[in-house]
Design a protein around this nucleic acid. Structure first.
Lengths: 201, 201, 201, 201
DNA sequence: TATGAATGAGTCTTCATTCAT
DNA sequence: CATGAATGAAGACTCATTCAT
């Protein structure tokens, strides 16, 4: 009984996730979920309180980890290491691991959640990331007093947004892990030297 | 008479654009357009064949220019000048001009066209941009045979996507022209040095 | 065309009124109205904005007159005439005329509007009536200073409520006009002597 | 065990009564009763055969006594005493006692039972009361052959209905016992003199 | 060209009740 | 007795589009 129940619940979530990804939140009807999951329409409401709840539940495992990732940036103990390739690699490795794990959810959240209560997640996350970039800059100023930290807020915002965009692109394109790794190296080289040029001269 | 008709047509387009931007393509009903435009619901179908057609027409002036912009990169007569700040400035200045002019349409297209036939425009445009990046690279190789042009396709794709994302961020945030200019300088400095690091060493 | 339209509209109202009276507001579904009126369900919403709107429209002719009736009491120019049988007859005659005219609507409003925005009409009307009774009493005190006007507010409330109840009973029972007239005489005799006993001793 | 079961049963009835009174019979769902009573939805059907049954059970203690009250009028041993204030006081005192005791049930029955099998109780009760009024009149005629007992049936019906309406008003307005008593005196004075005027002259 | 009524399938959600366990 | 999943119909309302006039 308990097993059967979990089965139905999971079937609903599974079907919903697929459909949301294919046709978006607004483009997916409860009827369709009901039919594809082979679960009586009304019965769905014994498992979830409404359509939005299904989406939130689909994304639950993702949200549980997303905060951890966001906090990674704060743990900058030695800012001097920040520009080291190793450190960057490490950070991004964690991100990519995260991305690979939640590929589908990220895609759903970034591109297919319009009309749901989560449609503003992208902005929320961009703002969070921007905050971390700014904290990073304050630390930098303390350690390198001569650094030019007058970079415009909007550029920082753009960079934060870029990161999320990168996540989006990765999850949109089914890039192989190897390609991701190659890409990371390029990205790190690219941005470290970009930042250096902006800040240190 | 013809003038009157144009008025009706334009009123529909105007209202539709506003509503699409506010509530998205799927979130906007023909009824609402009809009411807000003060044009009879059935009559709308004398001007446009369906809802999707309205969106496409709204974005028509934008599409007319977008190809020009896309082709800008191809006109690289002297690739040696490519890394010059002046040239980059010029290119991006054109982009910003374009962005400022079509701010609304870009926003609509990037964030609010889900459910329409244009929902894949972002991908289409990214691909176009990626192509241009690749052409640029071939030219580069011809001129600087020693350049390391083994940058991964995915990274190039990411950069093309970044550009579109930047467009999206700009049109999403009502940045002042001055801030845009400051931002461009930073962006150019940042990316030129990023590319240098990737390619020339 | 215009004629046909009115026909449909009236058919909806007619069917709705009948069904509301039979099964109450809550007990009547839009589907049923649609079927019985032979009007496409969605099309009903071209005529009325929602179910409640239908009820309100059904009762509109009633509401237009109800305020007139309510104000009748205020026009007491000569309070000395108040207890005269003629005056009472006149007042109630007007009421009965009103009741006979809007028999169905009153029934609907008093007994079958639960769940609609009009479900509190009975209370609203009772309060209005109570107000008028109280005004009447102030006038009485001015003219007959020795009158005992210490009748409890609740009793006055009960009498106001009684009136409405009488309306309800009349419309519930298809009483003939003759019987109504006979009843009025009895009611007037009964209540005038009741009030005399309460007030004048 | 048996005690526990009684608890469950009572909890259901208690919650149902509250909800029926708040939102009416139709406006209360089994789900809500289940949740508020903390009793499994399906399990409710082990105690009651359906929603209507719950309402009927809620009102059972009331119905058990209502017949006694109705019969009070029949026990007129000496019709000569009928108009005595003492006797009327006594009768109505009993009614008020009854009302105070079953305040909630009366309210539920009179105003909130639409859609249930008891929605016609008001009519049933009015008819019963009317019968008693008529019996009373026959007795009166026997004792006072000169009395004018040609009062219209409808007026009697109205008076019976008035009583029920008074019950309704009392239970609707949380009148204090003192106010009820004051009101009764007024009511008795009022109606006795009303009847006198109608019958004895 | 303009009207707005008509269509029919669609939206999400809730209902009372039943059933296997 | 208790559970809570299952059922199937129903709830009000909206949709893009078509059509006769």
């Amino acid at each position: 009984m308990q097993v059967q129940k979990e089965e139905v619940r999971n079937k609903i979530l599974e079907v919903a996730e697929t459909e949301f990804m294919k046709n978006g939140f607004q483009g997916t009807s409860m009827r369709k979920i009901s039919k594809l999951a082979n679960v009586n329409l009304g019965n769905i409401y014994n498992y979830f309180s409404n359509k939005d709840d299904i989406l939130r539940t689909v994304l639950q495992p993702f949200f549980k980890e997303v905060d951890k990732i966001v906090q990674v940036h704060s743990d900058i103990e030695d800012i001097r290491n920040f520009f080291s390739i190793e450190h960057q690699q490490e950070i991004i490795e964690k991100h990519v691991e995260f991305i690979t794990k939640h590929r589908q959810q990220i895609y759903l959240l970034l591109y297919k959640s319009q009309g749901s209560s989560l449609e503003l997640f992208r902005d929320y996350y961009t703002d969070k990331e921007t905050e971390h970039f700014l904290i990073l800059f304050q630390r930098l100023k303390q350690v390198f007093p001569n650094a030019n930290t007058s970079v415009s807020d909007f550029f920082i915002h753009i960079c934060a947004s870029w990161e999320i965009n990168i996540f989006g692109e990765i999850v949109s394109h089914d890039v192989s892990t190897d390609d991701i790794r190659k890409f990371i190296e390029e990205y790190v080289t690219f941005s470290i030297n970009g930042w250096k040029a902006l800040i240190l001269e």
